[in-house]
Amino acid sequence: MKAMVLNSYGPDAEFEVAEIPDPVATPGHVVVKVAASSVNTVDTMIRNMGADLPLSPALPAVLGMDFAGTVTAVGDSVTNFAVGDKVYGCAGGLLELQGALADLMLADARLIAHKPKSLSMRQATALPLVGITAYEGLTRADVAKGQTVLVQGGAGGVGHVAVQIARNMGATVSATGRGADQMALIRDLGANAIDVTTQKVEDYVAKHTGGAGFDIVFDSVGGANMTNSFAAAKLNGHVASTVAMVEMDLTPVHFRGLSLHVVFMLIPMIHDVGRQAHGDILKTLADLADAGALKPIVDETVFKFADIGAAHAHLTNGNATGKVVVEA
């Protein structure tokens, strides 16, 4: 079969078309004919950093974590999928797991679910990594009906999904962003829009929580912005972060009695621990999508697998609006 392969790592590494062996359906796995894959920041990190990133696959490497496609073969002990099923998931593109930028992909059946019927393959492939990340962060922070939730980076890949899930959980949601376009998008998603270029933390906390602070802050921006999240949370509140690779003083966390939840959704793939939880979350996300409560935003630029280098550039250059998708 054909695949887009990296034979080297680094910022200038180029994807090349190569013939690689077809995967065989092993016990607990299915083979999927890939229709589309989406580009995540972690994909670009692997390409740029290579061996410096401990989850990078050995060369030659087939990247692509998210996918949507059709099951073509089923391994022993798989009972919930059959040949011809339309599925989606996040199941490869790191360590020894072949990625989705190929005609066919071997996927652990625990890491996938039936594709939302209401979404196209292009839309569905934009959802797994960001959707699972958002769902894990919100559920670990125990979001419940009637609570106030702040999503930092509400127009981003993870953030725009977190806004929709939190609203479906019954929370009153506010979200930060920058500029008129992001403000419009956040409002369209049903959240209070906060432009951080013009509003300070104490101002939007006063406006949207009466000065008490948000019950839960979901921070998809991370880094130095986490100090803003700590300041925006109520006493004994929760902060969930998806980007916590930073050194900082946790004194504000201590004196506000905050619970800090760090989400790294690749753990089940890396360590083969709790993989079925991802399949279960994907089923929940599919149900939400089919109920009209969740829709991923997909960048309008059309890329094919052969254009994967340009797709990476489109994401890293900051030109994308929504998830960047490549189609087979």
Rank of each mutant, 00 (worst) to 15 (best):
D12I: 11
D195L: 02
A13V: 05
T41R: 13
A291Q: 08
D215V: 01
T198D: 03
A141T: 10
D290N: 06
N236V: 02
D272E: 13
N319Y: 11
K200F: 07
L185T: 15
A231M: 10
H312F: 15
G279H: 04
V161P: 02
G157I: 15
A113R: 14
V246L: 11
N40H: 09
R140C: 03
D203T: 15
V74W: 03
A141S: 14
N317D: 11
T176R: 04
G99L: 04
P128D: 05
T209N: 01
A58Q: 12
P27N: 00
H254C: 05
V221G: 04
L55P: 00
A310I: 10
A310V: 10
G279C: 01
A107R: 08
S120E: 04
H314N: 06
A328L: 03
V71R: 02
S56A: 15
A291Y: 01
P296N: 05
H312S: 12
I308V: 15
A233H: 14
A313N: 03
V39P: 09
A124P: 05
M169Q: 03
V326M: 00
V39H: 10
G154N: 10
P57D: 13
V205K: 01
G222R: 14
Y88R: 01
L282S: 10
D249N: 14
Q147K: 11
I46S: 01
V201E: 01
V196C: 02
G190W: 08
V325P: 15
K86H: 08
G75P: 08
A51M: 04
H208A: 05
H208Y: 13
A206S: 12
D43V: 00
G279N: 09
G156P: 00
T316A: 01
P252W: 04
A141H: 00
A109R: 07
K283E: 10
H238P: 00
L282H: 14
M49P: 01
A51W: 02
A107D: 00
G237H: 05
G222N: 14
S241R: 02
E202F: 03
P54R: 07
Q164S: 03
S77F: 02
G153H: 01
H160E: 09
G170E: 11
P11L: 07
A293I: 03
